[in-house]
């Protein structure tokens, strides 16, 4: 199973990754990060195929994908 590493302390919650995830397995979480944004989280790890579209679209380069 692919592994997604999200450095959510740096995420600015723009939700571009959520919009472009082909499997809709990301979501904006309810908690606040130290920057004061609501960071993204992996809602459905089983559905993730590790295509890395989220990581490529991320303007903050906070997502790493391992497979």
């Amino acid at each position: 199973m692919p592994k997604l590493v999200i450095r959510d302390d740096r995420c600015k919650g723009c939700s571009i990754c959520v919009e472009f995830c082909p499997k809709s397995c990301l979501e904006i979480t309810d908690r606040l990060n130290p920057l004061g944004y609501r960071p993204v989280g992996l809602r459905d790890p089983e559905a993730c195929t590790g295509c890395a579209i989220c990581a490529r679209m991320c303007p903050e380069v906070v997502i790493e994908v391992w497979k």
């Binding site: 740096r10 600015k12 919650g13 723009c14 571009i16 944004y37 490529r56 679209m57 991320c58 303007p59 903050e60 380069v61």
Partner: peptide, 12 residues
Amino acid sequence: PFHFCPGCHHGV
């Protein structure tokens, strides 16, 4: 960390 606004394409 980038100083850009959320969603700014400069980071990409």
